[in-house]
């Protein structure tokens, strides 16, 4: 069948019944400011790492919130922890601690604690 270069991919949909939200829950518990992001993108705009690579802290958090954690490991390892994002965040999100908690969460996932 001719698909005209397109397919209907089921994976494209966020199936909220199936995604794994345990990482989001873990981070929220340890760093409550994870909840208050308004997706303004100040963090990503000021990001020192984003000068060199595709990395958006805003997007990373959003994906975790939606339970899409497949790429988190790869993404989060790009952060240099410079802390500029914390200084520009209009909501007072504790960005560095979120990154450190993502690290912890990933470790816990590998040792099956989460």
């Amino acid at each position: 069948m001719n698909k005209f270069g397109y397919t209907i991919s089921r994976d494209n949909q966020i199936d909220y019944d199936k995604v794994d939200r345990s990482m989001a829950a873990f981070i929220e518990k340890n760093e409550p400011t994870f909840r208050i992001c308004i997706q303004c993108g100040s963090c990503a705009a000021s990001c020192s790492a984003a000068n060199f690579t595709r990395f958006s802290f805003r997007k990373l958090c959003l994906l975790i919130r939606r339970g899409l954690t497949d790429d988190v490991q790869k993404e989060v390892s790009k952060c240099m922890l410079c802390g500029k994002c914390r200084l520009v965040c209009p909501r007072g999100v504790n960005t560095r601690n979120i990154i450190l908690n993502v690290h912890q969460a990933l470790h816990k996932t590998t040792v099956y604690e989460l």
Partner: peptide, 26 residues
């Protein structure tokens, strides 16, 4: 437990100079 990976970083461009000024991220 977690190791970051900065292999994406390119070699920085440099310039012949005597005095370097570095403002830092902040």
């Amino acid at each position: 437990e977690f190791r970051s990976d900065f292999s994406y970083l390119p070699d920085l461009q440099t310039r012949k100079t005597d005095v370097i000024f570095f403002a830092g991220c902040m």
